[in-house]
């Protein structure tokens, strides 16, 4: 009886988490895995810096934060050049961007968390451009998107070129995942010790409990 009672709550939790995870979209999201090694992240920063930064800011990321993914102070200095901003801001100003696109393109700092299955969403979005009719491009995941196919994924002439673009997109996705939660690594490594400590404490209390209750009768 107790077991069924318990199974119910586990079931309830699973159901609720399933509901909160489920997101419906037009295009099925690509099943990709994100690797966050230093090299990938560094390449990702460069992809953002040379392509995305034309229009998208990342206002929660300071140049100084890039030290955390392995950039040296000298490299950052070189990257910044004569820029005085502390944070990663778009090259084109909001005024110009509004004139071109009719809106300010969203800030990318939190993008990997701001969509359900964020990393998969970003990757799929950037690889879902197609030629709708002669010279008119659209996106399967986001029909009517105003952003152009910046990585020219839909224009790739041969498989090698396509793979090269896809790798680039994977790199920038990895960087966006890092940027959305820079403390993830610290969190996960601290979590191990916290949980190990608590498991130890639970075992200890279990035996204390057995001993105390053993005194009865």
């Amino acid at each position: 009886m107790k077991k069924t009672f318990g199974a119910f709550f586990v079931g309830l939790l699973l159901l609720v988490s399933h509901i909160s995870l489920a997101g419906s979209s037009v295009q099925p999201l690509a099943k990709i895995e994100i690797f966050q090694d230093e090299e990938t992240l560094k390449r990702g920063v460069m992809v953002y810096y040379n392509s995305c930064r034309l229009c998208h800011s990342m206002k929660y990321i300071r140049y100084q934060d890039l030290v955390e993914i392995g950039f040296s102070t000298a490299e950052i200095k070189k990257l910044r050049g004569r820029l005085t901003e502390k944070r990663l801001t778009s090259i084109n100003s909001a005024v110009i961007l509004t004139q071109i696109y009719g809106l300010v393109p969203p800030d990318l700092s939190l993008m990997a968390k701001a969509r359900s299955q964020g990393p998969q969403y970003i990757y799929t979005l950037l690889t879902s451009y197609y030629e709708k009719s002669a010279n008119i491009y659209d996106n399967k995941l986001f029909p009517g998107i105003r952003m152009p196919d910046i990585f020219s994924h839909s224009l790739a002439l041969n498989p090698q070129e396509k793979t090269k673009t896809e790798n680039k997109i994977l790199d920038v996705t990895a960087f966006l995942v890092w940027a959305s939660d820079p403390k993830a690594q610290e969190r996960k490594s601290l979590g191990k010790y916290v949980i190990a400590y608590l498991v130890g404490l639970s075992i200890m209390f279990y035996f204390v409990m057995k001993r105390v209750w053993g005194r009865l009768e």
Partner: peptide
Amino acid sequence: TVKDLFGLCIFLVIFSYFVFYKPNLFIMAE
């Protein structure tokens, strides 16, 4: 007191798992 402490530790193990490994599970992307 000891039984509640034992229960609390078990609870904290599960709670910490979500805090450290799945903190965004209950925060909607939106």
